[in-house]
Computed example of a mutant assay.
Amino acid sequence: MRRRKKSGAKDELLKLDNMLILNPEEHKGNWKDVAGNKKIHVELGTGRGQFINSLAEKHRDTFFIGIEIKEEILLEAVRKSIDKDLDNIKYLWHDINDIDSIFDEGEIERFYINFCDPWPKKRHSSRRLIHRNFLVKYKKILNSNGEIHFKTDGEELFEFSLNEMLEMGYTVKDVSLNLYREENVDTIKTEYEEKFIAQGKNIYRLSAQNNK
């Protein structure tokens, strides 16, 4: 079913432009100034913002950037940040395909990719956010020993991501094939994650370290 856009979401989002960076290309190479010299963590496909807002609230010494292309969903994330009165988070209403036009070499410490679209058909594999075409871009943007933190409920997508990351020269660690097999796991959940856990699905996780 095709997703129906929420009427008025664009106008409403633009009213909250103090939380948005509408021309991120202008900051390429100078994000440390935007972040106040804090380390920078970026969530790719931030969705409704539960994950990134929880992180920003918990880690005030880190500057967070959420990237999302769907305005009606991004609007919900932005509202959460306003409700929490967070000053260490901004949002980009932007296409991740052009991420290398936003960030310069070595500017980012960590990327989060949570429950991205699996694009299950083989002919669409290059659209996956963990395809090597994207991993090459992330590798350049990440600083030395920077990391990608990845979670999914899809076994095939997880296997694909693991192989892609190894092929592209990342060091893969913290691999879990069932993250919540133990009850007390210290991790922040996304909205999708909570839903999948309730359905009894396995949650797959890994982190991949950049090697420059």
Rank of each mutant, 00 (worst) to 15 (best):
Y138Q: 05
G146P: 04
I148W: 09
K140F: 04
I141D: 04
Y138D: 01
H131K: 01
L135M: 11
R128E: 06
D153L: 10
I141H: 10
G146A: 12
K140W: 01
K137I: 09
S144A: 15
F134W: 01
T152S: 08
T152F: 04
S126E: 13
I148E: 05
F134E: 09
H124Y: 14
L129P: 01
F134H: 02
N145V: 06
T152C: 10
F150R: 05
L135T: 06
I148G: 01
T152W: 00
F134C: 08
S126M: 13
G154R: 02
G146M: 00
R132S: 12
V136S: 12
H131W: 08
N143F: 11
F150G: 02
S125L: 04
I130T: 12
Y138C: 00
N145A: 14
L129Q: 00
G154I: 07
F150A: 08
H149E: 13
H149F: 14
H124C: 09
I148A: 05
G154F: 12
V136G: 04
I148H: 05
N143E: 15
D153Q: 08
N133K: 07
N145D: 15
I148M: 06
L135A: 04
H149K: 14
I141Q: 08
G146Y: 00
Y138W: 01
H131I: 02
N133R: 02
H124I: 10
L129D: 09
N133A: 07
S125I: 09
R128Y: 04
H124R: 11
L129K: 01
K140L: 08
D153N: 11
R128C: 06
G154Q: 10
L142E: 01
I130C: 02
N145P: 00
L142T: 07
S126Q: 15
R127M: 07
K140Q: 04
K139Y: 09
L135K: 00
F150E: 05
R132P: 05
H124P: 07
H131S: 11
Y138S: 06
I148L: 13
I148T: 07
Y138A: 05
L142N: 05
V136H: 11
S144H: 14
N133Q: 10
R132Q: 11
